[in-house]
Structures are given as structure tokens and as C-alpha cells.
């Protein structure tokens, strides 16, 4: 059965969606991702959808759900690289995914993710450096 690979990179999980999503695939991804967050105790999830060209309301909601699930499990999340056409479609569908963090590309997404979790897992020392707790 088709699966979307989830890569582990340090504290983070990387998900790159490179095929057109269908509903079953999305549900499997939800399962896999929540399991993976729990098993690896990941601090952040980055979902790259730069190759995703077709979305419907289900996929849109799923993106929102995944973020909420990650948050419930104590991980930050960011969706990166959304195509203009996809963004317009989602807005027209009335899904503006409030509460989901977004970034233009993987690089900026990683920065955002780091900033997000910095607040939780690092604390600022007096000389201005971050140290892991």
C-alpha cells in the first residue's frame, strides 16, 4: 500500500508530499505521523507540500488536523511551500487554516520551527546564547 515517508532529522520529522493526495493516503499519513511523534518524541513536524498541486476540502482539513494533532502531542508544526493555486483554492473553499504555521520553503520552515520550539525547550542564558534544558 502507498505510504508517504516520514523522515526523522534530529528533533524534527520531515514529511514531503510528492504525490497527489487521496483520502486514504491522507488518513494513513495521519496515523503514521501521530504514531511517529509519540515514538520519537519529536519536537516539530515539517510538512512540505510544494509538489502538491490539487487539493480538496478533505485534504485542506487534513492539513489543519495534522497540525492540531501535533500540537496536542506537544510538537510544533509548519506547512511549507504551498503553491499559489493551492492557496487560492483553499481560501475559496473557506479553509484559511487558522492556527497552522506556514512558511515559503523548507529553509524558512525549519527556522520557524526552531523559533517555535526554542521557547519551550531552550532558555536564554544571560550572555544571549540558547542552551538546551
Amino acid at each position: 500500500m502507498d505510504r508517504i515517508p516520514i523522515l526523522t532529522m534530529g528533533h524534527f520529522l520531515l514529511v514531503t508530499i510528492q504525490v497527489d493526495m487521496h483520502d486514504q493516503l491522507a488518513l494513513t499519513l495521519q496515523d503514521d505521523l501521530t504514531n511517529k511523534i509519540t515514538s520519537t518524541l519529536a519536537k516539530g513536524v515539517l510538512i512540505d507540500i510544494s509538489s502538491l498541486e490539487i487539493v480538496d476540502s478533505f485534504i485542506g482539513r487534513m492539513l489543519g488536523n495534522i497540525s492540531s494533532m501535533a500540537r496536542v502531542l506537544g510538537a510544533g508544526s509548519v506547512v511549507v511551500g504551498m503553491q499559489p493555486a493551492v492557496a487560492i483554492t483553499l481560501v475559496e473553499l473557506g479553509l484559511s487554516l487558522t492556527g497552522v504555521y506556514t512558511a515559503l520553503d523548507v529553509e524558512k520552515g525549519m527556522q520557524l520551527l526552531r523559533r517555535q520550539i526554542d521557547a519551550d525547550f531552550y532558555h536564554l542564558t544571560t550572555d544571549g546564547n540558547f542552551v538546551e534544558i
Binding site: 492557496a87 487560492i88 483553499l90 481560501v91 484559511s96 487554516l97 506556514t102 512558511a103 520552515g109
Partner: peptide, 12 residues
Amino acid sequence: LKTVAAARLMGA
């Protein structure tokens, strides 16, 4: 607001 929401979805 629609325009803003679409830009935000892209990460801007």
C-alpha cells in the same frame, strides 16, 4: 482578507 489568508497559507 481572502488575499491575506492566501498569502498566509503560502507562508507570507
